[in-house]
């Protein structure tokens, strides 16, 4: 059939655009989580195209065959209540499709919500990602460094992002490494990612957060583990520690370039998790806040701005 052929051609054209020479970001994964998601997306596009084609074909058939202009004037359509077999089919096939998709969906849910497959042997790199209007603050607690609006990550190692926000709900998203997750003010959410290939990837806040939302982006530099270690050492040598005053200044609404510090804000302003969380009920909590306020800082004045 001509129409069917055209439809198939159209589908192939769409697929070509989706996966073609300049692949779309989400379908050009650079890590296991994004790979899982891209696989689910392509599989579901395939199954859904089958449904779309079926509906289009039936519609076109009905319209071509049962137009009034093709029938005699005295034709009176019959009264048809329904048919158990036909209704069984139109219920049965969608149920089967939904079951298949449910299995795929549940399986992929557990994959993206866990340490990426194949990376379980080493400890993940933990990075705290805090958003403030309209910036991202990345703290590496084990390395003792902090960056603003850019990330350095090692390839071939699991990454565990601890997300929270200083204000409105934001969403941490690096499409080529994996899907997004919300950062909120009263709790910490965890996003598991990993990068397979070195490169510079786009990251952004995907959840509308007010005036500066469009520019609320960051860059992700995935480098080999050796290069990552070198970068950590270099930051420790050249960057200045982050003071509380400086940190509070950084939180002010606005946009900043890329900054680098040789200490993290987690020491004096911990993430809202555990005893600092907004949602733990009972028990006293206000212990560390004031103590931390009194922690002395040698370098209150200048911090080193590290630009690329």
């Amino acid at each position: 059939m001509k129409i069917k052929g055209t439809l198939l051609l159209l589908m192939f054209a769409v697929m070509a655009v989706l996966t073609g020479c300049e692949p779309l970001m989400v379908l050009n994964p650079k890590g296991p989580q994004a790979q899982t998601q891209a696989d689910v997306i392509l599989l579901s596009i395939g199954i859904m195209s089958f449904i779309v084609i079926a509906v289009f074909a039936i519609l076109i058939y009905m319209l071509v065959k049962y137009r009034a202009s093709k029938q005699s004037d005295d034709y009176e359509p019959p009264h048809i209540e329904g048919n158990h077999i036909v209704e069984g089919i139109i219920v049965g096939i969608p149920i089967l499709i939904v079951i298949v998709l449910s299995i795929v969906s549940v399986r992929s849910n557990y994959l993206v919500e866990a340490t990426p497959e194949g990376y379980e042997d080493q400890d993940p790199l933990v990075v705290y990602a805090q958003s403030s209007n309209w910036k991202w603050h990345f703290s590496y607690p084990e390395e003792g460094i902090e960056t603003v609006n850019y990330l350095y990550i090692p390839t071939d190692r699991a990454l565990e992002f601890k997300l929270y926000s200083d204000g409105p709900i934001t969403s941490f998203w690096v499409p080529q490494l994996g899907g997004q997750k919300y950062a909120m003010s009263d709790m910490v959410t965890t996003l598991h990612l990993a990068a397979d290939a070195p490169g510079e990837y786009m990251g952004r806040n995907a959840n509308f957060s007010g005036e500066g939302f469009a520019e609320n982006t960051f860059s992700v530099n995935a480098v080999t583990p050796d290069e990552f270690d070198e970068w950590v050492d270099e930051v420790q040598e050249t960057a200045k520690p982050l003071t509380e005053d400086k940190y509070n200044e950084l939180l002010e609404p606005g946009h900043l370039g890329q900054l680098t510090f040789s200490s993290t804000h987690l020491e004096f302003s911990p993430a809202p998790e555990g005893e600092h969380g907004g949602h733990h009920h009972g028990g006293s909590s206000d212990d560390s806040e004031e103590e931390n306020m009194e922690m002395d800082h040698e370098n209150m004045d200048e911090t080193h701005d590290h630009s690329e």
């Binding site: 689910v40 998709l101 994959l111 899907g179 997004q180 995907a206």
Partner: peptide, 15 residues
């Protein structure tokens, strides 16, 4: 239905 697949939704959400 595609958006309903939550793992993939992490990529579609807010886009």
């Amino acid at each position: 239905v595609m958006l309903g697949m939550s793992a993939a939704d992490y990529q579609y959400h807010n886009t």
